[in-house]
Design a protein around this nucleic acid. Sequence first.
DNA 1: AAAATAACTTCATATTCTTGCAAAATATGT
DNA 2: ACATATTTTGCAAGAATATGAAGTTATTTT
Lengths: 271, 271
Amino acid sequence: MKDTNERKLLSEEREQLILQALGDGARTIGELSQELGVSEATVRRDLQSLEKQGKARRIHGGAIRVQFPRTEPIFTEKATLHAREKQLIARRALDCIDDNDTIYLDGGSTILALARMLTSKQGLTIVTNSIMAAAELMESEHRLILLGGEFRALSRTLVGPLTAKIVSSLYIDKAFMGTIGFTVEDGISTTDANEAYTKELIMRRAKRVFVLMDSSKFGAPSLVVSGSLNDIDAIITDDAISSQAIKQLKKKKIDVIFPEMPSGKRANRET
Amino acid sequence: MKDTNERKLLSEEREQLILQALGDGARTIGELSQELGVSEATVRRDLQSLEKQGKARRIHGGAIRVQFPRTEPIFTEKATLHAREKQLIARRALDCIDDNDTIYLDGGSTILALARMLTSKQGLTIVTNSIMAAAELMESEHRLILLGGEFRALSRTLVGPLTAKIVSSLYIDKAFMGTIGFTVEDGISTTDANEAYTKELIMRRAKRVFVLMDSSKFGAPSLVVSGSLNDIDAIITDDAISSQAIKQLKKKKIDVIFPEMPSGKRANRET
DNA sequence: AAAATAACTTCATATTCTTGCAAAATATGT
DNA sequence: ACATATTTTGCAAGAATATGAAGTTATTTT
């Protein structure tokens, strides 16, 4: 996959990408230089900076990740990936919300972007299991309800059996779900069983379920399946998914919604 | 174009839009300038302002959103009042906690101070209804469980009937409670009925209940009484309370615990 | 030890930042 | 309503920074 996003990256973005690349083991300077589209000298400088921050360790010919990634790399790292698509998807989802709705916000960075936009609505009742979304909405005028439950650090959400206690006494108009993986056969899937369980409960409980995901999730299942395709009413995604997949989804009566493209282009047919 | 809103924007509106555009990732000055329809110089000034507010971080060529907004006007304000006493009280409470305990943390700045100290313990299961405490403990190794419920902005806690669902399925060794007011007749009291209700549930459910408060709370009732004196096992407070009050409390079999004074002095007789 | 590869240094170039200033917009006082 | 402050915005020149290329030095491999 080549990123058609040929915008010049900021140094910190590059560093994030490098850390991510290092996640799969060690990398050589040459590889990194090519992947990032910058000169080897620049890669060396970035690595120097990362080493000073204690996030990576240099070795001859390349670099490896430091043993204990002490901070919360997972959340912030994932966040920067496909940031623009996520922004557009969230923007589209915003249009699906009416004033005074009762909505549910799932975890994940796309949903978080949506949360940040909710200041433009009025009188919402917002239910969420995402600490990040809650932190974002603390100052808002909306009514905010947090699911309780066990805190899962990786996703910063509340999950597990305890959430069921509260979910079962709520009624939700529209649920906005994120996901790690998705297939046309099984619907959404995630890495953690507790997380999957909570998602499932919510989807059963919501009148209308929207799944927000960038097209990279498509066709890539994760460990634990959550609910089924029948639980999903609509998918909001960017336009890089195959027209075949769209057909299959429509056959299952699932709406596929695309964001407004800023420059008006809509290049749907693909590889 | 989605933003055909050609009205001239106020700087604050622009800053809001910038934050939104930043999303999780980063943006270059050029992008922002174009998206907002203002010059790059203006974008820089806006970013400068956002950085001062702690909401964004500038980097060469653009800006990155800061993960967790720092400022909490309500909270920091109250926190500075009697800060030293609160610190000492929290310190003393810490000694009451053993490794592997299951503890409950209530809202309030004193308890928050305690939360920050918990890194020195191991293997705790921490139950809380305080978003601030949860945010503080996200990075820790402890097991963290949040009560669900309705978010109350003033105290930044989760309160109300929904919390009951989860509380009733938990068992807590030691509960550390804050309070707004206290009298020897009725025990702790607070301004909000939902808040009082949740406190009451917890105290009923905990094996041992500690109330942390500086002496200014003494003899000053608030609106809604929460539970009764019988629910309380110990009070941790500074030494500016009357010896008469101590006697009364001891008669009710409530321990009164004082912090270690840094200089070793213990001047208990008072005005 | 020689060859090959990688790392460091220096420098030229291209962006980006800062700063001061002027024009425009907005607020304020009479 | 008018005139005067104050603030906001855009522009431009010099300062600062980032990047890439070339050449030199260090490290690894054979």
